[in-house]
Amino acid sequence: MMGQINFNAYQEYREQSTKYEELLQKKEEIAESKEKLVALISEIDRIAEDHFYKTFQKVQKNFQETFSKLFQGGWGSLELSNDKKPLEAGIEVLAQPPGKRVQNISLLSAGEKTLTAVALLFALWKTNPTPFCFFDEIDSALDEANSIRLASYIKDEDLKNSQIIIITHQKEIMKIADALYGVTMDKLGTSKLMSIRMAEERGN
């Protein structure tokens, strides 16, 4: 037994059919957009990895050279934790100060850690030089011998028109400065800024 006849069935069918065709077209457009987006992401990743590897190799080379100069020998290296996914990988710092075996930076003494960190900072700076380098007591953990090494490196390094500003209490670092700025306090407890042009003091 048949029920009531729906005289609007054909019209409803056409409306639903039109909606279906529209949704099907949107699905195809979304699939096409997804393919383009995936391809774009892959291309961006490829370019990013290429730039990363090139920069990493430059930093690696600069780090090895700087490490050797600061420690007056020894060996330092940077290694990726995952070569297959460099953009997601960590970077491990390996160091071998003169007369010691290769070890992770976490196992070094405070002074050795400081010099290794400074070597990495200068390696990054050499890769992409900036007009200014600002260091806040980077030599605080260094003994006199290592302070002399750091001072000698900074003095002899080609700064390429860059200026290095260092907050320090180490006299060895102060000796190589072109200018010294300090804050003193008088008997009344008032702070006073003082400056010394070292070139003039040296008679240059």
Rank of each mutant, 00 (worst) to 15 (best):
V59I: 14
Y53K: 13
R149D: 00
A179E: 15
K100P: 04
L120E: 04
M174E: 11
W125F: 13
A141Y: 07
P97V: 05
L24Q: 13
K34D: 13
Q96G: 07
E172M: 10
I5Q: 09
P86K: 08
E28I: 09
G182I: 06
Q170V: 05
R46H: 14
G99S: 01
K192P: 03
K113P: 01
A48K: 12
T18I: 09
R14Q: 14
G73P: 03
Y153Q: 05
L80R: 02
L193P: 00
M174C: 09
V38K: 13
E35V: 06
E12P: 05
E144S: 12
Y53M: 12
L159N: 04
L40F: 09
A179Y: 12
A31C: 04
K61W: 05
L37T: 14
K171T: 14
A145H: 13
M1P: 04
N104M: 10
D186H: 02
E137M: 00
M198F: 05
K84R: 15
D83M: 12
P98E: 08
K126L: 09
W125M: 02
F71A: 03
F52L: 03
D83E: 15
E28C: 06
K126V: 00
G90R: 01
Q72P: 05
E112K: 03
K69F: 07
Q96F: 02
S109D: 06
L159C: 03
S191Q: 15
L87A: 05
A48W: 04
R101N: 12
P86A: 06
K19H: 10
K61Q: 12
E32S: 11
R202E: 09
A48M: 08
N104H: 14
D45K: 15
K160P: 00
K175W: 04
E28T: 11
Q64K: 14
E43W: 01
E32V: 08
I164P: 04
A145P: 01
H169R: 09
K187R: 14
A39K: 11
T18S: 14
S106D: 13
D136W: 02
W75E: 15
L150A: 00
K27M: 10
S17Y: 09
L23C: 06
E172K: 14
D186L: 01
K187G: 15
T190D: 13
G3E: 03
K126Q: 12
I154H: 02
F134R: 02
T127H: 07
I44K: 15
G111Y: 00
D178P: 00
T66Q: 03
E137F: 04
K58P: 01
H169C: 08
L115K: 00
Y13E: 14
E32Q: 12
E12Q: 13
T66N: 15
M198L: 13
W125K: 07
A95P: 01
L115F: 01
D186Q: 02
Q103E: 11
I44P: 00
D156F: 05
A39C: 04
E49H: 05
L24I: 08
T18K: 15
F122G: 01
G74P: 02
M194S: 15
T114F: 00
T130E: 05
N128I: 08
G203A: 05
G74K: 05
K61G: 02
E22M: 10
S68Q: 14
E29K: 08
A199D: 14
V102R: 12
S42H: 12
S195P: 06
I176W: 01
F132D: 00
I105T: 03
M185N: 02
K113S: 04
V102P: 09
R149Y: 02
A110G: 12
E92V: 11
